[in-house]
């Protein structure tokens, strides 16, 4: 455990530049929102749009972080892999630091978003707004973890390919494999048996704000908010986490058995 904690401390140092880059990028989007809001006189609205984009982009946070961190290790695989620690321990350390960095920006973004959305969408039921933000947070975080596992798997596949072919061909082969896998995964999710297996543990999230409905009545616009009763299934989250764990284990196996220095 002590070895893993020291390793994780090293991972924080190694991944710091990518965290700072993402932080600057997110700050840039928010600054852009503030600037555009000032220009057009819709400060809260543009700020809300910018924060919504930032929140959405968190789904890719782990992918960007792992890309940077693993690419840095690729140059020194002889150091990274020469350890008695399991590959699962090595990768878990990277995932953990990535999640910590991600949560630090995500929590700040959520706090800003709640404040901004409350000002912008004051006509939306507050309960509906909180339901939207709460469900978005869960979806974004699980999606980020899922994407992170997908990246780990295909990075290990790419690394294995790159031992036989050059980087460009390895990249192309990996991209092809990603498309095939996404197609197969989408097909898998459509199987009625799997749907029956995962449609359990319904959570009634209540009404979620999903958009606006505008109508023109007697020389004036009438704007109504659209809200939808939403049901989440715990089974879907369990399914996603299950597949994420499978991909993580597969990545560990590939690096352990196939990757060479």
């Amino acid at each position: 455990m002590n070895a893993w904690l020291f390793l994780t401390k090293k991972e924080f140092r190694l991944g710091l530049p990518s965290f700072l880059m993402v932080l600057i990028f997110f700050s840039g989007i928010i600054a852009g929102g503030v600037f555009a809001g000032n220009q057009f006189g819709f400060e809260d609205e543009f700020m809300s749009i910018a924060l919504a984009i930032v929140l959405g982009l968190h789904t890719l946070f782990l992918v960007v972080y792992l890309y940077y961190s693993l690419n840095a290790e690729r140059r020194r695989l002889h150091l990274w892999l020469h350890t008695p620690m399991s590959i699962a321990g090595l990768l878990a350390s990277k995932l953990f630091t990535g999640v910590v960095y991600m949560l630090s920006t995500f929590i700040i973004s959520i706090i800003l978003a709640i404040q901004s959305f409350k000002n912008t969408f004051s006509f939306v039921h507050q309960e509906s707004l909180f339901n939207s933000i709460g469900s978005t947070s869960v979806i974004v975080l699980i999606a980020a973890l899922f994407m992170g596992s997908v990246f780990l798997l295909f990075w290990s596949v790419y690394l294995t390919f790159s031992q036989k072919w050059n980087d460009f061909i390895s990249f192309l082969l990996t991209v092809v494999l990603i498309f095939v896998s996404v197609w197969a995964y989408a097909g898998l999710l459509d199987i009625p048996f799997l749907q029956a297996l995962t449609n359990w543990g319904a959570i009634h999230a209540g009404d979620i704000f999903i958009g606006f409905e505008m109508s023109y009545i007697e020389d004036s616009f009438d704007i109504q908010t659209m809200e939808e009763a939403t049901v989440f299934y715990i089974g879907h989250f369990v399914r996603d986490i299950f597949f994420a764990v499978i991909m993580f284990i597969a990545a560990c196996w590939i690096i352990e058995r196939k990757v060479e220095v």
């Binding site: 140092r13 020194r76 002889h78 150091l79 350890t83 008695p84 590959i87």
Partner: peptide, 18 residues
């Protein structure tokens, strides 16, 4: 296998460090 690192110390020819 890779875990033999617990009884083998390896110095690489490569000049890469943290």
């Amino acid at each position: 296998d890779r875990r033999i690192a617990q009884s083998v110390s390896y110095l690489s020819e490569l000049d890469e460090y943290y």
